[in-house]
């Protein structure tokens, strides 16, 4: 296999992986703190993509400039989903939480199908087909932006959780809920904030994704399983893990596509998923077993 084939596949894998990582960051935050496996994550990404799409086609707002609108809106949406729906339905049982988020995802996916049909929609942006020439490969500009932004958002989340008072409260709740409550932390509020932040990262992902991607009501499915794999591989609750896991999976998919062909390429991701679940459920960077 020659370098002319390998290097573009590598670059392609890394930029795809950055997007996987971006989607997985919110999922890993929600899991790390609330211990919720959020099945609605992919569907919320789909809703965010439609939001950015309609901001662009309806109001002519560039997807990158939509960030300051979409991110706060999704933060609020996430906060109220947790406080208004999930909190009241879970009755403290893990299985129920899983089912509630599954129910939310069924509702969102199918309402989208009902209102917007299954047409594949894309937007036109002036820089959509611009590329950066790095000598051995060409990188599309939107993908380079998404790659940089994924690293930036991971750093931002790491700073928020690791270096601020809010982060300290979140870590306290994640580690010892009752103790945190006794120290006067409003645990339910922190849960809402985390779900909100996790959902807000999806809005950011949508803004960064749409210039080089498409939206359909089913688009969430393409991401949600890969995001679960990323989170499990990296270690549930670990930002570094989500970032590294996403990049690894991007490379695996790209290599799988190169060796096995398009349709079988993705199988590598699921085999990694099963193997990690079976043999190392704490992942690469995870803490103690759940």
């Amino acid at each position: 296999m020659t370098a002319s084939l390998l290097v573009p596949a590598l670059v392609n894998g890394l930029t795809t992986g950055a997007i996987y990582a971006l989607v997985a960051l919110g999922l890993t935050l929600i899991y790390g703190v609330l211990h919720i496996i959020n099945f609605a994550h992919g569907s919320l990404l789909m809703v965010a993509l439609y939001g950015v799409y309609f901001l662009n086609t309806g109001l002519g707002i560039d997807p990158y400039l939509a960030l300051p609108i979409a991110v706060p809106a999704f933060f609020i949406l996430g906060y109220f989903l947790q406080r208004g729906v999930i909190e009241h339905t879970a009755h403290g049982r893990d299985q129920n939480i899983l089912l509630v988020t599954l129910g939310l995802s069924i509702i969102l996916d199918n309402l989208a199908l009902y209102f917007w049909r299954s047409d594949t929609r894309t937007i036109d942006v002036p820089y959509g087909f611009d590329v950066i020439d790095i000598g051995v490969a060409l990188i599309p500009v939107p993908r380079a932006v998404a790659f940089g932004a994924a690293l930036g958002i991971a750093a931002l989340l790491w700073f928020l959780i690791g270096r601020t008072d809010l982060g300290r409260a979140i870590r306290a709740v994640a580690r010892e809920r009752q103790g945190a409550r006794l120290m006067g932390i409003d645990v339910e509020h922190i849960y809402g904030l985390c779900f909100g932040i996790g959902t807000a990262t999806l809005a950011a992902a949508a803004c960064l994704l749409l210039p080089s991607f498409y939206v359909t009501p089913q688009v969430g499915h393409a991401f949600v399983l890969v995001a679960f794999t990323t989170v499990v591989l990296g270690g549930m609750g670990s930002f570094t893990g989500a970032l590294v896991g996403g990049l690894i999976l991007g490379l695996v998919e790209s290599a799988g596509g190169l060796i096995l062909g398009e349709s079988l390429g993705q199988i590598g991701i699921f085999i990694i998923f099963i193997l990690v679940l079976l043999f190392r459920p704490t992942g690469l960077f995870g803490g103690k077993p759940a």
Binding site: V85, L99, L102, G103, S105, I106, N110, L111, F115
Partner: peptide, 15 residues
């Protein structure tokens, strides 16, 4: 779409 969305809603109501 709408029928499946109703199933999801029913699931949440039951839970």
């Amino acid at each position: 779409g709408l029928n499946l969305a109703l199933f999801g809603l029913l699931l949440i109501i039951v839970l």
